[in-house]
Structures are given as structure tokens and as C-alpha cells.
């Protein structure tokens, strides 16, 4: 299982200059709108996977963007990765909101970071009979992952964050993030029968 390693030695951004963030800091409303537009869908998507409550996610997002604008004078001009910055802020806000709400204590939601699977059209025509079984197996494999594994995979691959950023957001060591993700992928490989893998990889 080498996936962790393959990405471990990834490209590390050591400096970057981008006009968008700078314009935003100078109070450019268009830049603010651009940032909102560019990230709102991903932030909402993450928020919903995190707590499955639309209104709560929307409230946190509203606060997040309001605070972002009103505190822009105090923000670092060197925010290299806006998406990371926003995601980690959203996660903190959601956690804070959930902790206040007693109903949510100790609730381990299996819906969090849930996968969906659809087979490509061409395959559906070819192998119709086995398809239900295949899907069931895949679903079983995917849902056997823990919430933490799913969240780490989600942040790393869906939101494209670097491993150290995922670690920072989830308050984990970078090494444990590698382990979590490679274990999850190893688990999938083990659970999926060869024909299914071949079906996935074939064509």
C-alpha cells in the first residue's frame, strides 16, 4: 500500500502571489464575491457531509463570510490556500455550534462523508445481471470505513488539500493522516472481489 508515499513527497508551495486575496484584503467587493462564488459550493458540500443539517451549515457559512469581510484588516496577506483557510474555519464553527447543541453529543453519524456509486453507462448495458450484487459489495466496502477515514479521504482527494493541511484541520499528526488514508484504501482493496476491481478497471 504505497498511496500515502506517492503523495507524501508532493509539491510543497513555498510562496505564491495571487491577486484575488490581495484585492479582497484591500476591500475589493468584487474580489470578495469571487471568493464566495469560487468556494461556496465546496464549503456547503463539506458542511453537509460534516453535520447533515442544512440550516446549521448555512448559518455557519453566513457567519464565516461576514467575519471574513469584517476582519479582513487583520488577516494575513500571505494566505496561500484560500480553500484550506475557509474549510478549517468552517469546521471550527460547525464543531462549536454542535458542541453547544446537546442533541448532537456522542452522535456518530454514518451519513457523514457517505459515498455514492454509479457505474458508467456502457458497463450497465454489458453486465446487467451481476450489477446489483456488485453495487452492494462496493457499497458495503465503502461504508465499512470509519467516519474519520472518510473525512480524511474527503479532504485530501475531494477538496484537494495537502496532507499537512488535512492533519491541521482534523487536529491529527501528518503521519496519522497518511496511515488513516492508506488503511482505508487498503481496506477497500481487500473487500472488493477481483471481478469487481476488474469491472472497475476494465474497458
Amino acid at each position: 500500500m504505497n498511496t500515502g508515499k506517492a503523495h507524501k513527497s508532493g509539491l510543497r508551495v513555498v510562496a505564491s502571489h495571487s491577486s484575488l486575496w490581495g484585492r479582497f484584503l484591500q476591500g475589493d467587493r468584487h474580489a470578495f464575491a469571487e471568493i464566495y462564488e469560487a468556494h461556496i459550493d465546496d464549503l456547503f458540500h463539506y458542511g453537509m457531509h460534516f453535520c447533515q443539517e442544512k440550516e446549521r451549515v448555512k448559518d455557519c457559512l453566513q457567519d464565516l463570510f461576514q467575519d471574513l469581510w469584517s476582519s479582513r484588516a487583520h488577516l494575513s496577506p500571505n494566505v496561500l490556500h484560500i480553500r484550506y483557510y475557509l474549510l478549517s474555519s468552517l469546521r471550527r464553527r460547525l464543531l462549536r455550534a454542535l458542541r453547544k447543541d446537546r442533541r448532537y453529543q456522542h452522535r456518530e453519524s454514518w451519513e457523514a462523508f457517505e459515498f455514492e456509486y454509479t457505474l458508467p453507462q456502457e458497463n450497465q448495458l454489458i453486465i446487467n445481471e451481476t450489477i446489483a450484487e456488485q453495487k452492494r459489495l462496493l457499497h458495503k466496502a465503502l461504508s465499512s470505513l470509519t467516519r474519520r477515514q472518510r473525512e480524511a479521504i474527503y479532504l485530501r482527494f475531494f477538496q484537494n488539500l495537502r496532507y499537512d493541511e488535512v492533519a491541521e484541520i482534523m487536529s491529527m499528526q501528518v503521519d496519522s493522516v497518511y496511515n488513516t488514508i492508506s488503511k482505508a484504501i487498503g481496506l477497500l482493496k481487500k473487500q472488493l472481489p477481483l471481478p469487481l476491481l476488474l469491472l472497475l478497471l476494465g474497458k
Binding site: D41, E116, T118
Partner: peptide, 26 residues
Amino acid sequence: RQLVQGIRFRAFSLTAADKEQLWEAV
């Protein structure tokens, strides 16, 4: 490519109206 196209995280999305409303609320 095959894999990328097959498996996804469950979709959650805001409608355009939701997005606009949220932006106005901000």
C-alpha cells in the same frame, strides 16, 4: 478515469436561489 467517473461522495448542493439568498444575508 473509469474509477473517477464511478464513485463519488454523496452530492449536496445549494440552489442558485439559496446561494444568492445566503450572499444577501452575508
